[in-house]
Amino acid sequence: MSATPTPRPTPRPAIGPPEAQSDDAYERELVARIRAGRQEAWGELLERYQDRLYTICFRMVHHRELAADLTQDAMIKIMQGLESYDGRAKLSTWIIRITMNVCLSRLRAEKIRRHASLDASESRDGYFDPGGGRPAGRRREREHFPGTSVEHSDLRATLARALECLGPDQRAILILRDVRGLDYEQIAEVLGLAGGTVKSRLFRARAALRDAMETLGRSDGHQGDERTR
C-alpha cells in the first residue's frame, strides 16, 4: 500500500485561549476588591466574563433564551460562591467549572425528564439528537455566521448542529477544549476528571462529533437529493 502524502498536522497556535490571555493579576485584584466590599468590582468581573459564559451555555444547550438563563444562573452561583474560591485554580477555570456544572445539571435534568415522559413533539419535528442532550421541547436555533462564506457558514452550522447531537458530557469536553481552549489540566479540574480520562474522553468525543457530522452530512445530502428530484 503506497503512502499517501499527508498534510502535516498544524501545531496549535501559540496564542493561548482567551482565558490565558486574561490578566490574572487583574482578576486577582478584582476578587480582592469584591472581598473588600467594593461591589462595583462585581460588575467588572461579570461583564468581563459574560460573553464567555454565554458562549459556553449556548454551545451546551443551543437555545438563546435558555443559554441566557443558564448564564445568569451561573453568575448567581459565582456570586454566591466567590467567598469559597480559594485561589488554587485560576479564576477563569473556577468560573467555567461553575458554568459548566450549571449546564450539565440542566441537561441531565432535561434528559431525565424526557426519558420519563416520551415527548412526541420531539419525533414530530424529526430532529436528530442521538446524544439525547437537547432540552426537550425546545426548537433548534439556526446559528448565523456573519462574515463567512456560504460554504464555511454551512460547515460551521453543521458543526454546531453536530455538537448539539452529542451527549452533554462529550459536548462539554469539546467546548472546553476547542471552543474555550482549556488545557487538559484545566479540563480535568472543570469536569472533575483524571488527566488520562480527559484525553480518552476527548478522543471519543471527537470521534462522536465526526460521526454526527457524517450523519448530518448524509442527511443533508439526502434532503438535497430529494429537493433536486
Binding site: 460573553d51 464567555r52 459564559l53 441566557a68 458543526l159 467546548i175 471552543v179 481552549g181
Partner: peptide, 9 residues
Amino acid sequence: LRALGDIPA
C-alpha cells in the same frame, strides 16, 4: 470549533 468563537451575550 475553535473558529466558532464567542457569541456576544
